[in-house]
């Protein structure tokens, strides 16, 4: 593959594929299918999902999944800056809609889920992350929320199913005095949400590779490995680097035996 092909493919991913992925997540994240009439229901992102998206984008910057210095800067052409800012905007709305997809629509559960998301994202702001670990952590976060909302809760509130399930659902609603009530949706909603989250995580994986030079990846790998070392080993590495200074130049004094030009 030539350098031109590589540059074209990168442009295609950065400016077409990634925004399309994220916009599709923004479209499907708020889509539900009604249980009774199988009609589409579009749920606009609640305010809390915007807050969660801000925290998530900050985390992506801290985890070096978003590289501002590479994407937006005075040394880049204006069109490239605009295209990158647009891509980041689509990422922001996709993040808000990804949360919207796994948050219960109302009641106490909505606030419980929101609180746990906020707590996790806030804590993660103070942890050290590399892109790979951050991706893994986000995939698990969204995966867990998906299982809880679309499998566990959906099964409890389902009008279909066995008597045991219905008794458990009724008990849960009774004990919580109706505060855990949640609207029921058709099973298609779960499939849509699964596809949405998969697309979102796939977009983040692509993002991790977007605009990443080979030399850059090697350097970051070394830096990451260095950061994971204990303090004593780090000191040894630093000493080794300092020892690896270029040898001092030897001054050759004029020797009368060597003829000068």
């Amino acid at each position: 593959m030539t350098a031109t092909d590589r540059s074209r493919n990168r442009a295609l991913v950065d400016f077409v594929v990634l925004p399309m992925f994220f916009l599709t997540v923004a479209l499907l994240g708020g889509l539900r299918v009604g249980a009774e009439n199988r009609a589409f229901i579009f749920v606009a992102p609640p305010l809390v999902t915007l807050l969660l998206a801000v925290l998530l984008v900050l985390l992506l910057v801290r985890g070096r999944l978003i590289r501002f210095h590479q994407w937006v800067g005075t040394e880049l052409p204006p069109l490239t800056n605009v295209a990158h800012i647009w891509m980041l905007l689509t990422l922001f709305f996709a993040s808000a809609q990804a949360f919207n997809s796994v948050l219960p629509e109302g009641g106490l559960l909505h606030w419980l889920f929101s609180f746990f998301f906020l707590w996790t994202l806030w804590n993660n702001q103070f942890s050290s992350f590399d892109p790979r670990r951050l991706l893994r952590s986000l995939a698990i976060l969204f995966g867990t929320a998906f299982v809880l909302k679309h499998m566990l809760l959906a099964s409890l509130y389902s009008t279909e199913g066995g008597w045991l399930r219905r008794v458990a659902g009724t008990l849960l609603q009774g004990v919580s005095l109706g505060t855990l009530d949640a609207p029921t949706f058709a099973p298609a909603t779960g499939y849509i949400s699964f596809f949405t989250l998969t697309l979102y995580v796939a977009g983040l994986i692509l993002l991790a590779f977007a605009g990443k030079d080979e030399t850059d990846s090697v350097v970051h790998q070394v830096v990451e490995e260095y950061r994971q070392l204990p303090a004593s080993d780090r000191l040894a590495v630093r000493d080794a680097i300092l020892d690896d200074q270029p040898a001092p130049k030897i001054e050759v004094k004029n020797d009368p035996r060597i003829p000068t030009k």
Binding site: R8, A11, D14, P19, A83
Partner: peptide
């Protein structure tokens, strides 16, 4: 070519966002 991709990508995705 990269510039064409940028412009086409922007136009396409802005239209898609408007549709959403």
């Amino acid at each position: 070519k990269s510039k064409i991709i940028q412009v086409a990508g922007l136009a396409l995705t802005i239209a898609y966002a408007a549709l959403i």
